[in-house]
Every structure is written in C-alpha cells, then in structure tokens.
Design a protein around this nucleic acid. Structure first.
Lengths: 141, 141
DNA sequence: AAAGATTGACTAATCAATCTTT
DNA sequence: AAAGATTGATTAGTCAATCTTT
C-alpha cells in the first residue's frame, strides 16, 4: 500500500505546486473537459471523480467561486444540476495538464516497458473489478 | 489512477466500518506494534506513515484520548517524543487486523497468481523509487 | 541556532438533516 | 414518496508560528 499512498501524494504535490489545484479539483475539471458540451450532471460528476455528492457540491462551489465552473439546473428536468466548465476553467485545465501528464509519465509510464504497461492495465482492471463487487463500497459511489 | 483511488477508498471503508479507525490511524498502530518495545519517535512514526509531523501530532493526540497510545519524552534525549502503544491499543490492533488483512487479500492478493504478485512487487518498487527521486516530495517525508 | 514537536487558525471532508423537483 | 442536490455542524488536515531541548 505504501506505493499507492506515495504515488498519490506525489501527484497531489505536483498539482498543488504547479496549478494550485487539489487532485480532485483537477480531475473534476478534466472530466468536464472530456464531455462534448463540457457539461455533466452533479451526480454523474460525483461518480466519475469518486466523490460523495456532498463533497462534490462543496468542491464545485469552490470551483465556481474561482470562476472555473458554473452550475445551472437542467432545462429538461429541474431536479438535475449541470456543472459546466467555463472558458476560464478550460483555459486553466489546458495550462495545467502538460505538467501533470509529465509527472504521471515520469513516475509510472517511464518505469516500464510497453509489455509491462499492458500487464499493469490488466492488474488495475482486476483490482477495480474486485473493489466493485466487494462489500466495501466507499460511501456513495 | 482510478484504481489507486478506489482501492484506497475500499480499504478505508472497511477499516471505518469494522473498527472505527481511519486508514492512517490503523497504520500508525500497526507500525508501533512492529517495534520491539511498541515504541517509535514521533518523527520516525511520521515517516513510516507518510504523515507530516503536524498531522501525526493531531492524530496521536486523538489516539491518546482513546487510550490506544501514550506519549512520553525520550529519557535519553528530551527533544524526542516517544509514541508508545498501550495494552488497549495492542488489543485493538489484534482485534482489527484479521478483517483488514482479509479485505486486502480479497481485493489484491486473490486477483493474481504467485508469479504476478512478484511482478507487482517489482512494479511497486520501481514506482516508489521514481517517486522518491522526483521533484514532488509530498510535504515532509 | 537547529531539530523535534506541538499549537491554533484556516481550509477541506464527512455526516445527517433539509430542500426542491418529479 | 423518491431522486438529486445543497446546507450546516462536526471532525480531520494543512500551514505557519511557537515552544523546548540540545
């Protein structure tokens, strides 16, 4: 587990220093940017960022106060709230991504051959599957 | 990274439910129990639990308030503080370890053959080494 | 002065309670 | 009533400032 903890700490550290974003804040922006309309419902965003809805709500409030995201009710169904990446949010992400990608590259990708990386992907998939079917569903996922 | 995040969340969830301890609290107790005298300096314990000294100080205060650990100044050098596992703390750990070990076993170990586990260990070691020699030293390690 | 550790103020996360829309 | 989301109170973590011992 040490490796799991330290790898995450290193990546958190890089993001904090280079862009002033937490790991989860960064990934929320990244997930939104992958959507066609740079938009995702709060509940969907919570799922893909491994956040509880409550945590995400607080987090998006913060991102909104920084002008990186805005929220508006889904026009087609008022009980959904859409989180939308702003221009500034997208610019922030574009500015932040290269350094983060370099860090991940250096810490993980560069350590292995192409064949090992394939292996590693299998490993991850099996562990993820085991986690998903386990009793230990972390809060609201 | 998703796998790294979710695996940790699942293990945190198990510990919280089954023993009412956070991941770091559990590991602090576990590290102390591995020492001959169930004792470690605060600074050493911080290093092996991947905590800042400040975080560990708050955390140990909590463990102390629960009667699981006590602190006393090192008799040989007054600027060190020793964290010492109490009887109750050891009992708590003994009661908690099996379920936690089973969870880790189920989520990781059981997913692989013996050969793959050896591979996995190599993977971890290489990533750890890369993290250690990187610019992104997470706070005070 | 430097190392080890603690403290207090601030920021973030969690949990239960609440509010809104369907 | 149920789903989606937010809020507010408590608890944990971070950061800078402080205290103690060497």
């Amino acid at each position: 587990m040490t490796m799991v903890v330290r790898l995450r700490l290193a990546l958190e550290c890089q993001l904090e220093r280079d862009c002033g974003l937490s790991f989860t804040e960064y990934h929320a922006l990244a997930r939104l940017s992958e959507e066609p309309a740079h938009t995702l419902r709060m509940s969907s965003l919570a799922a893909v960022t491994d956040c509880s809805l409550s945590k995400l709500s607080h987090l998006v409030k913060r991102l909104e106060s920084w002008g990186l995201v805005r929220r508006e009710p889904d026009p087609t169904n008022g009980r959904f709230t859409n989180a939308i990446l702003t221009e500034a949010g997208y610019a922030k992400l574009v500015a932040s991504a290269p350094a983060h990608a370099r860090a991940a590259q250096a810490l993980v990708i560069d350590q292995f051959t192409a064949g090992e990386l394939v292996q590693l992907r299998h490993v991850s998939e099996r562990v993820l599957e085991a986690v998903k079917t386990s009793d230990w569903s972390p809060g609201l996922l």
